[in-house]
Amino acid sequence: MPMPRDTRRRALLASGASLWLAGCASGAPEASLLQAGPARLPDTRQLDLRDPASGRVWRIWVQQPAGPAPATGHPVLYVLDGNAAFALAAQLARNEAARPAQMRADSAIVVGIGHPGDAVVHPAQRQRDYTPPAPGGSATPEAGGADILLDFIARELQPRVARAFSIDPQRQALSGHSFGGLLVLHALFTRPALFTRYAATSPSVWWNGAQVLQTASQFMQAHATAPRPFRARLQLRVGSLEQPRAAPTAARAAVQHERRMIERTQALADQLEALHWPELRVHMGILPGVDHGGAMAPGLIDALAWAQQPR
């Protein structure tokens, strides 16, 4: 008895899919999906750079912008946790550049700063590199290396980017999430002229007894009177679910209470906004419906827009 048409069609589709996924078991020359070449990001370069001063190595990604430079030069967005965040930030910049000319912002250079290796997150290295040293202390192999990384960015990375591209010195942004956001705040409070725009998403303000809040107080005291030798913008973002709430375990509830992400980040924003310094603009935002990890992606969207804003 002939096979019904629908049955024959389903059988043909199933057999075709099986052959494709198996790399054509019939012996045809097509490569299997798992044998295909690795994907590459367009207009992107990657290299591992050794810091001559510290000997540490960071993996750097650079996506060059589409089209000619604006009259003032390209804005630059430096993205921490590059292993996890660079590809997304670079694609967001490409998406923006593909919009109609009358609707798109100035095309941005995206620079990722990460660590050698294919892991999405390098917990030990990011704690080492993104946390500030204890007051009166110095960096250790485990933590407190924020100034070592910022020195590398200032002495090695930023000059390389400036030599390679036409950049806008008034639109240089540093973006980070979690420990990366902590480094962004430390950079603003200790060397506010290193960048002109700072974007801290879910910053770990709780680190070491909320040490960065003490650094913020020192920053406010040091620059209490004008003139101030910087002009900076700070964007703060935190997820709406990053607040103490019912937790499945007592240990998790204790962590949430200790960190108090929304409370502490909002308090910092309020303090800085109350200064009314023309040299420092602050924008605080709560990202709806996301927790700590989920805040990274919408934070990057806002950080890119922050970097591309007109002067």
Rank of each mutant, 00 (worst) to 15 (best):
residue 48 D to G: 04
residue 208 N to A: 11
residue 254 A to V: 01
residue 48 D to Y: 08
residue 72 T to M: 07
residue 8 R to W: 10
residue 286 I to D: 01
residue 181 G to H: 06
residue 269 A to G: 14
residue 26 S to I: 09
residue 175 S to T: 12
residue 278 P to Y: 02
residue 167 I to T: 08
residue 62 V to Q: 04
residue 73 G to L: 03
residue 269 A to P: 03
residue 190 T to C: 05
residue 79 V to E: 02
residue 222 A to S: 11
residue 18 S to D: 14
residue 75 P to D: 07
residue 216 A to L: 13
residue 10 R to A: 15
residue 25 A to F: 04
residue 286 I to G: 01
residue 7 T to N: 14
residue 166 S to K: 14
residue 86 F to S: 00
residue 120 V to N: 15
residue 141 P to H: 10
residue 108 A to Y: 06
residue 142 E to I: 01
residue 278 P to N: 05
residue 241 L to H: 13
residue 246 A to S: 10
residue 203 P to L: 08
residue 244 P to A: 12
residue 21 L to P: 12
residue 282 V to W: 03
residue 161 V to N: 08
residue 27 G to C: 05
residue 269 A to R: 07
residue 174 L to T: 03
residue 18 S to W: 12
residue 80 L to F: 04
residue 155 R to C: 03
residue 46 Q to G: 07
residue 125 Q to F: 00
residue 247 A to S: 12
residue 279 E to W: 06
residue 134 A to T: 10
residue 28 A to V: 03
residue 163 R to S: 13
residue 116 P to S: 13
residue 211 Q to D: 15
residue 26 S to Y: 11
residue 76 V to T: 08
residue 266 Q to R: 15
residue 304 L to Q: 00
residue 7 T to S: 15
residue 96 E to I: 01
residue 275 L to V: 09
residue 175 S to K: 04
residue 261 M to S: 02
residue 111 V to N: 10
